[in-house]
């Protein structure tokens, strides 16, 4: 049985047996959950289908959040994509950005999502994987399998650092999601287990210290847009790893650093809506707009 305490364990076990991390994890999880492979695969496939649905739900023109502070970002990005033939970043990335915005918007409007690893960061993994599925021709089977890789990296991150904004800031939510997604992307592109770990390390390093400062305490500003930054970092980290650019600090040490950074982060910057963007004059004004001045 795997312990999910180190990324090194995932890499060395997969290398030793010459299999993908996703195959290793599916086998291990089936054993520990006392279920067969097909059952676990089907459950993950269902999650992937909900991810696809959450993209569709959130890209509607009239999508609005419960508070009314945000809405329609996915639609705007898709319109821009069509109008400009791919915007600045090209078709693939602009479409992926639209998907991240759509899923995060779906979440903000009380739509159905897959927390991956959390609700606040739920747009990053779907944006990466639905893009590879719909626009790059990857098979559903490979995509669904790659979610076991994401999940395994996420378990190590949860064990070694944190996946909760209240404990570790946004680096623990969008940061973790990007690191998990990066590992999946590398595996899908045919990278080695070591390259998956490198991509994870690069993504974690890229978001080290990111604070959780939601305006009015809502999962909207800046969370929705940070899903886009997480997505971009997932792609760039995966590309760097696939290019053979190694992480100079090993993934496990990056996670230890992430934990230490989260520990010293002041509570004002850990989901309490008391610091960062939440504490700006405009952030405060938006809070009053939603909740009034009456506060307990």
């Amino acid at each position: 049985m795997l312990k999910y305490e180190t990324i090194a364990e995932l890499v060395s076990e997969a290398e030793k047996r010459n299999i993908k991390i996703s195959e290793l994890v599916l086998e291990d999880q089936a054993k520990s959950m006392e279920k067969n492979h097909a059952e676990l695969y089907e459950k993950m496939q269902k999650n992937f289908h909900i991810m696809i649905d959450s993209v569709k739900d959130g890209e509607k023109e009239n999508q609005r959040s419960m508070s009314g502070l945000t809405g329609g970002e996915g639609f705007k990005m898709n319109s821009y994509l069509k109008r400009t033939g791919g915007g600045l970043s090209g078709n693939l990335m602009t479409k992926a950005m639209a998907r991240a915005l759509s899923v995060a918007g779906c979440n903000a409007s009380m739509g159905k999502i897959v927390a991956a690893p959390t609700a606040g960061s739920c747009g990053i993994i779907p944006a990466c994987l639905v893009t590879l599925y719909e626009d790059k021709g990857f098979s559903e089977k490979d995509i669904v399998m790659s979610l076991f890789t994401s999940g395994a990296f996420g378990m190590v991150i949860a064990n070694r650092a944190s996946i909760a904004g209240a404990n570790g800031g946004c680096q623990a939510e969008c940061g973790s999601a990007a690191a998990m997604a990066a590992a999946s992307l590398v595996e899908l592109m045919g990278g080695t287990p070591k390259q998956c770990a490198d991509a994870c390390a690069i993504a974690v390093s890229s978001q080290m210290g990111l604070v959780c400062d939601p305006v009015a305490g809502l999962v909207e500003i800046p969370c929705i847009k940070r899903n886009v930054s997480g997505l971009m970092i997932a792609f760039s980290s995966a590309d760097m790893a696939l290019a053979g650019i190694e992480a100079k600090i090993p993934a496990d040490e990056c996670l230890d650093a992430m934990r230490e950074v989260g520990d010293v982060m002041t509570p004002a910057l850990k989901e309490t809506a008391k610091g960062g963007l939440a504490a700006t004059p405009t952030g405060q004004k938006l809070k009053e707009q939603v909740f009034g001045t009456d506060n307990l």
Partner: peptide, 21 residues
């Protein structure tokens, strides 16, 4: 903890603690 605690749960947003909980 298993892989579906990380890729999951499926829930109605926006917040795992304020909505799903």
């Amino acid at each position: 903890m298993n892989v579906f605690d990380i890729i999951g749960p499926v829930m109605i947003g926006p917040s795992s603690s304020h909505t799903a909980g």
